[in-house]
Design a binder for these strands. Sequence first.
RNA 1: GCCGCGUUGGUCAAUCGGCUAAGACGCCUCCCUUUCACGGAGGAAUGACGGGUUCGACUCCCGUACGUGGUACCA
Length: 507
Amino acid sequence: MSSKVRVRFAPSPTGGLHLGGVRTVLYNYLFAKHHGGEFVLRIEDTDQTRYVEGAEQYIYDCLSWCGLEPDESPLKGGPHAPYRQSERKASYYQYAKQLVDAGHAYYAFDTPEELEAMRANLKTEANPTPQYDAKVRMQMRNSEALGMAEAQKLIDTGTPYVVRIKMPQNEQVVFTDMIRGEVHFDTNLVDDKVLLKADGMPTYHLAVVVDDYLMGITHAFRGEEWLPSAPVHILLWKNLGWGDKMPEWAHLPLILKPDGHGKLSKRDGERLGFPVFAMNWKDPKTGELTQGFRERGFLPEAFINILAMLGWNAGTEQEIFSMDELIEKFSISRVHKGGAKFDYEKAKWYNHQYIQRKTDAELVQLAKPYITANGVDADDTYLEKVVGLIKERCTLLPDFWEQGHFFFKTPEITELAAIKDKWNEQKKTFFESWIAVLDAVTDWTHEALEASFNEVMAANGLKKGDVLLPLRIMLVGGKYGPGVFQIAEMIGKEELSNRLNNTTALL
RNA sequence: GCCGCGUUGGUCAAUCGGCUAAGACGCCUCCCUUUCACGGAGGAAUGACGGGUUCGACUCCCGUACGUGGUACCA
C-alpha cells in the first residue's frame, strides 16, 4: 500500500438511497480517511433506460446529511473528471476494442429474441438458466463463430452489436478478498458477460474496471452481491494489461430483513414500519413517497453509528462512536463476513442515546421544526426549558412534540376515565380550594407550587395518591410527562387554573 | 439446477486452541418515581449437525444441513 489510498462509491442514480448503500459509502469513507486517502463519488448511469430525474441530486443530499462528503464528485469535480459515466462514454470503446484485438473479447450480433430463443431451447430442469458461454458460443452469431471478416462486414453494414468477454476455459481465477480471504472461481462456470452494449455504453463490468483504473482506485469495496462477477472484473484487469494496478477487493456483507429472509428492501420497511432510505424519496414517475431516516427524526450521527456497527465492531465494549472515532478505529479486518439482520429497536436506542448527549440548546434547534409544524411559536428560552424536561422521553425528533405539546397548547383530555371513577366531592373541593390559593403563591416555582398543593391537600384530608394523578391528567391529558409541578410552573398561573377548571367541569 | 459466500442467545456481537462463552438491543422481575420515561439491581436466553486433527476445540480440516447472493445488452 505504497500509493495513496483512493476509494470510490459508485451508485446508480435510480431511486432512494438504501441504508446498505450508505453503509457501503461509510466503510469506504472510513477506510479512506483512516489511511489519509481520498473518497470519490462516481455516478454509474450507464443504463439510460433507468434514468430517474432527481436521483443524482438526492444522492448528494443524502451524503451531505450523513457527513460523508466526497473529495471528488460530479458536483465537486477533480483531476479525473468527468465523474459521470454517461459523460465518459467515448472512452470505453477503445478498451473493448483492445480486448477484442487481443482475443479476450468478441463482437456478438445476437438479437434479444435470439438470446431468448437460445435460453428457451437449452433450458432444462437440470439447467434452468442457460448461460451464453463457451458451450454455446460457436452456435451463436458472433465474431468467434462467424469469423472476424464476416463480423466486420456486419459491423460495416450497421448491424447492432455488443462486445462480450471471452471467458477462457479450464482456468481458476483466484483472488484475495480483504474480508473473506482467498476466493476461487472456475472459468468454465462463468458466462461471456456483455462488456459494451449495443448503444455504445459500457456495462457495469467494463465501466467499473476502466474507471477504477483511470481514477487510480486502490481499494474497491462493494456489496457481497458483486462477488459472483468478480472473476469477470479480475480477468478484465489482467487482460487490459493493468494487473499490477488492480485494487484490493472487499465484498461487504449484506443487510438482511429483520424477519424472514433475504436482503432488506424498501418494501420491508413499509411492511414493518421503519425507514430503509436515508432520506425521503419521492418517485417522480409514480409520485410515491418513501420516508427516510432523516424525516423519521433520526440524527445523522446516530444513523451513521448504527450503520457502522452493522457488520463491524471495534472489538471493545464501546457502542457509541463519533465519526472521528470511527475513522480512527475502523479496520476492514474487523468487518464481519456474515450478513446482519437490521434491528430497528436498536436503531431507536442509538438515536435516543444521541439525543441525550446533545445540549439543550442544540436540541432546541433540532426540535423546533416539529414544534412550529404544530402552529406553535415559542421563544428559545422557553423551548430550552421544555426540551430539558422531556428529552429523556424522546427517541425520535417528533417525540419532542408528542412529549411536550402540553407545554404549548391546552391538551385534549384523553384519559379522563383514569380519574372519573374515583372522582368525588372531596376532590372537587380540594381542586377548587387550590385554585383559590394560587394567587397567594408569590414565588412561582415548582417547589412553591408543590408546597402549596401539599398544604391544601392535607387540609382537605387527602393524600398524594388521591390527587396527583388527577392533576396530571388535567395538565397533560394522559398518564405521561415530566413532574406535574414543573409543568404547572412552566404554563403559568392562568393556564394552570384554566386547565384545572376545564377538566373538573367534565367530571 | 449450477456457482460463490456465510452460519455464536430473538437481534447486533466478543472470542483469533484452554470457556465457568463478554458486552449491547429487546424481553422478564425488583428498586427508584404515587404518571411515563430515565436511572439502578437482578434474570431467562447462544457455539446448526456429523466426522476428523489435537492433551484440549466455538475456534483448525472435511462432509451434511440450512441461510444468502449471483446466474440480464441492471447496477
